[in-house]
């Protein structure tokens, strides 16, 4: 079989005609036959995709016809498009199961995970648009520069527990960690950041508001039964919880189902208000609930973490 493979050259399958300009591939040499089956779509279904192609200097929606199978998700169709027509189409993905938060995009204008968006949701006669997240600068095609999020994350003072119990273990009741476990389900897809109008439409606000993802992170640390830092001055100050006007758009798009507004942001707002406008309540809380907390007012520094 090995020798047959090198001798016999079949005609090329449909080599798509492409223009260099939109970043397509060159014509391929005739694909050599493989003794094994290749993936073929047998459903006869086809869909029109309008995919945003371009980079920081600009771009536009490019139309493609792509076959698909029953049960597929948008990401499958994007992969098929890359494998057969547009090999340099930039897209991020990893788990293909809604666990890693890599494949965020705006499909028909809605911020979603491409790997969890089934084709059956769409009318096959209508084109589907697939665009990158708008809140972040474009790198290429569906890939955006999400470094804003990593920068904010680096400014959040980390978990700071006291010493463990004498046996070296730590004790917390399940009911006391249910809420923070909800927050820790965040897969960092940044769809909430994408949809939050405070930073989506106002680049300048990114300096003033950390965005819903990091309200979730801050709430998690604030509500951790074993944490000893008081981040409230920061939450009010540089992370800007007051900028949020509770539109709940973030909660609606969160693929992890985190109740971002109700469970994280509103309680944070209350805590911050308490601590600034009600000294008695604040004092009471300090004494009864978090006796060991010390306020932090500046970004965390490397030496403190070591």
């Amino acid at each position: 079989m090995a020798d047959a493979t090198t001798e016999e050259v079949r005609a090329a399958p449909t080599g798509q005609a492409r223009q260099e300009g939109d970043g397509a591939a060159r014509a391929e040499a005739p694909a050599r036959p493989s003794p094994r089956a290749r993936p073929e779509v047998t459903s006869g279904r086809e869909v029109t995709l309008l995919v945003w192609r371009g980079d920081a200097s600009g771009g536009s929606f490019v139309e493609y016809r792509v076959p698909y199978e029953e049960g597929e998700v948008i990401l499958d169709v994007i992969h098929r498009l890359a494998a057969t027509q547009a090999p340099d189409l930039a897209v991020r993905w990893n788990c293909k199961a809604g666990k890693c938060g890599s494949c965020s995009a705006e499909v028909n204008g809605r911020p979603v995970l491409q790997c969890m968006t089934r084709m059956s949701l769409f009318d096959p006669r209508e084109p589907i648009t697939v665009a990158p997240m708008k809140t972040f600068p474009i790198v290429k095609d569906l890939v955006t520069d999400v470094s804003f999020n990593y920068e904010v994350a680096s400014r959040i003072p980390p978990f700071s527990p006291g010493p463990p119990d004498p046996d070296g273990k730590r004790r917390m009741a399940q009911t006391d960690v249910d809420r923070i476990q909800e927050f820790r389900e965040c897969i960092e897809c940044f769809l909430c950041q994408d949809v939050c109008h405070v930073i989506r439409d106002h680049e300048e606000n990114k300096r003033l508001f950390a965005g819903p993802r990091f309200m979730v992170r801050l709430a998690e640390l604030e509500m951790h039964p074993l944490d000893n830092l008081d981040r409230r001055p920061l939450i009010r100050g540089e992370f800007g919880v007051v900028m949020c006007n509770i539109t709940k758009c973030c909660t609606e798009v969160c693929p992890a189902g985190i109740h971002i507004t109700d469970n994280a942001i509103i309680p944070l707002k209350e805590r911050v208000v308490d601590s600034y406008f009600d000294p008695i309540a604040w004092l009471g809380r300090k004494i009864t609930r978090r006796p060991r907390r010390t306020p932090v007012t500046r970004p965390w520094s490397a030496e403190a973490a070591s």
Binding site: M1, A2, T5, T6, R18, E20, G23, A24, A25, R26, E28, A29, R32, P35, D55, A82, P87, D88, L89, A90, V91, V139, K140, D141, V143
Partner: peptide, 26 residues
């Protein structure tokens, strides 16, 4: 192993288009 030998030979002929910027084919 025989098929892999053929595939190894084919691998020396991989070609990609587009440019170097975020190019999954490459």
């Amino acid at each position: 192993l025989e098929e892999l030998a053929v595939l190894e030979e084919r691998a020396t002929q991989v070609a990609v288009g587009g440019n170097r910027q975020y190019n999954p084919g490459w």
